[in-house]
Design a protein around this nucleic acid. Structure first.
Length: 610
RNA sequence: GACUCUGUAGCUCAACUGGAUAGAGCACCUCACUACGGAUGAGGAGGUUGAGGGUUCGAAUCCUUCCAGGGUCGCCA
């Protein structure tokens, strides 16, 4: 379903981009007009707004200071000089200090034919940028994945692909929270109430089964507490000494001692969970290169903290706890080891990070896809890593994202309003199926092919909905809107892709080859589409820089809207003359290809039919 | 309380990082087309960008003071 090897090297990227060319020309023109030397970066080039003639605009206000003339006069002189220079500028007009530049039509047709071609347009050569590790998902092993995990996984997975397109080698990982009292709770409940139930015997997914016993523990615990309260025990005692909780703590103690029975059950139940998660990840279309387990890393973290203690990075208080004082960096004191010597969350994360740098010595940085409620934690973590002597720590990044809210209120697991990931995806597939069957779209396809279409369409709706919003913002997940397949949605984009592909197939069937020379020059009607196609490399660059897939998502939508509108107004194969037809055919081909690239960066697979 | 993020059309989101008249979709109203795939396209209406002040040629964007909301401030993870 997903092609991981999509971005081999592309030497053509070395070609100078239009905006850079224009900056150079502007710099030379400015020297000529004013006798002042300004570096090309100082010239601000932007796309010209639709209501004005021209394709690119030079903002001349900042130049007025150096030219000692009014912005309009400066713009006028610059326009004249830039047209006179060798290059793509053929005309200009000045509006209130904005110099609108007209670009030669053959520049665009050349660009269309030769620079935008091929499956790798927009991507940097593989391995041309440093090795990055991206962590995402990182679930607890006692609860099935929910809506929040979907945003997390889609984000992390998409950012990985964007970084790959930017030339980075990317290693995708997750840290599995497989250790601690919460796991023991599920184990205790299963021993008490399970009667040997397994995923096979019950027909339940493993993660759901274990989750069921986690809930069962909680119910039994509450029952015991109210019984004990009724018997007259004080609240604290009723809770802390409830037999089932005592048993869970004892189980944790046995686990840490390596008791074979306890460890055996722990392995078995975790195995069920992993099998369940794997099924969910497969449905989601995400994958990982390597898994890290907290049960493997917390001891490493402990060792390194003790080492740091010897080196004076950390300090020990009288009760034996280990702290770091970050008040000098504007943060607080932070605990690293409890007074009884056991590890805390931070200790584990230090161990995990160091193990990763050890596993991959060429690692330039790590990206952590984790909710924004942990911003402080990661600020501290990166600072601690830096103080432990890891220069990469300065480049590590917390890809922080906001909560997914439901219309009825906040989505929090303890309030019981979680939306299960498997259920939600299955519901999306069902809706996609209903719509397609009602429209009679999939006649002639076998059941397996149909199922694949439903999955791609349904998943595109979900992924696109979650990825089009700026990650740092809290977002509203409206189930009703997400199942609406009109407007700014994944299915709308898919539909136009399929339509474009259909035109290309028809061209092939009619024996019309994809043109490689002599097409009509794009005119005003084509320029919006051409401009958007031209933007792709910049969009990828910005998205990589900001770790922000929403930039790619919105670009995909803009591109699709432009094509959809163009398609409506202009017959492709039925064009009046062959050169115009060829131009439209090339545009259609570039549209489908660039859209494929963009959607692939979002982790969204495109169908050929729908 | 301290720190931090957010606030844009009735709703959900944009705005090339300081640029021109703040743009899309949904919902609402009007219209077009035998339609290369109608899961369509075009248009209308809808805004004091939470409020005030400041910086400058120019502010949704930067500074500042308020207001509202989220998050964090555990020897939880």
């Amino acid at each position: 379903m997903h092609d991981r090897r999509s971005f081999p090297s592309n030497p053509r990227l070395l070609t100078m981009r239009l905006d850079n060319q224009l900056q150079s020309i502007a710099s030379a023109a400015f020297r000529q007009v004013c006798g002042t030397e300004l570096p090309p970066e100082q010239f601000s080039i932007q796309k010209t707004r639709k209501e004005f003639a021209g394709a690119r605009t030079l903002v001349c206000f900042p130049l007025a200071r150096h030219s000692k003339a009014a912005p309009d006069a400066t713009a006028e002189a610059m326009g004249k000089a830039m047209v006179a220079a060798e290059g793509p500028v053929t005309g200009y007009n000045v509006v209130k200090g904005f110099l609108n530049l007209e670009i030669a039509a053959d520049h665009w047709s050349h660009w269309l034919l030769h620079e935008s071609a091929g499956p790798n347009y927009g991507a940097a050569p593989r391995g041309s940028a440093p090795h990055v590790m991206v962590e995402y998902s990182s679930p607890n092993t006692n609860k099935p994945l929910h809506l929040g995990h979907l945003r997390n996984n889609f984000l992390g997975h998409s950012v990985s692909r964007i970084l790959e397109a930017k030339g980075h080698t990317v290693t995708k990982v997750q840290i599995v929270n497989d250790r601690g009292i919460h796991i023991c709770k599920s184990m205790v409940a299963w021993r008490r109430f399970g009667n040997g139930e397994t995923p096979e015997s019950s027909g339940m997914k493993g993660d759901k089964l274990v989750g069921k016993y986690y809930v069962a523990f909680d119910r039994a615990f509450k029952a015991e507490v109210s019984e004990r309260l009724a018997a007259g025990l004080p609240k604290e005692e009723a809770e802390q000494d409830a037999p089932i909780l005592v048993e869970a703590r004892e189980t944790l103690r046995l686990w840490e001692q390596g008791d074979p029975d306890t460890v055996g059950l722990w392995k078995t139940m975790n195995g069920w969970v992993y099998a369940g998660f794997d099924a969910t990840y497969a449905t989601m279309g995400v994958e990982f290169d390597k898994l890290y387990f907290e049960s493997d890393t917390y001891l490493i973290g402990k060792d390194r903290v003790l080492e740091g203690l010897e080196n004076g990075v950390f300090e020990r208080t009288e009760d034996g706890a280990v702290w770091i004082d970050l008040t000098g960096d504007g943060l607080d004191r932070k605990l690293l080891l409890r007074s009884d010597g056991t590890a805390v969350y931070m200790t584990q994360d230090i161990g995990t990070a160091l193990l990763r740098f050890q596993d991959y010595p060429d690692l330039d940085r790590q990206v952590y896809t984790v909710g924004n409620e942990q911003e402080y934690h990661f600020k501290v973590l990166f600072l601690v890593l830096e103080k432990l002597g890891f220069p990469q720590a300065q480049r590590c990044h917390h890809l922080s994202y906001g909560m997914v809210e439901l219309p009825e209120g906040k989505m929090k697991s303890r309030e019981g309003t979680v939306v299960d990931a498997d259920d939600l995806m299955e519901a999306m597939f069902g809706i996609a199926r209903d719509i397609a069957l009602e429209a009679g779209k999939l006649e002639g396809l076998g059941p397996d092919e149909q199922r694949e279409v439903f999955e791609r369409v349904g998943l595109s709706a979900l992924k696109y909905f979650l990825l089009k919003v700026d990650p740092k913002k809290n977002m509203m997940f409206d189930p009703k809107a997400s199942i609406d397949f009109y407007g700014n949605t994944g299915p709308f984009i898919l539909f136009n892709y399929v339509r474009g592909r259909s035109v290309l197939r028809k061209a092939t069937a009619e024996g019309i080859p994809l043109p490689s020379t002599a097409i009509a020059a794009p005119g005003a009607d084509e320029m919006e589409l051409v401009g958007l196609l031209h933007d792709l490399p910049d969009v990828i660059g910005e998205a990589a820089e900001a770790y922000n897939p929403s930039l790619v998502a919105n670009w995909c939508y803009d591109l699709t809207k432009a094509y959809s509108s163009y398609y409506q107004e202009h017959p492709i194969l039925g064009a009046d003359d062959p050169k115009t037809r060829d131009l439209r055919l090339v545009l259609t081909e570039r549209f489908t290809r660039c859209l494929y690239t963009g959607m692939q960066l979002l982790g969204i697979a495109l169908p050929e039919r729908m």
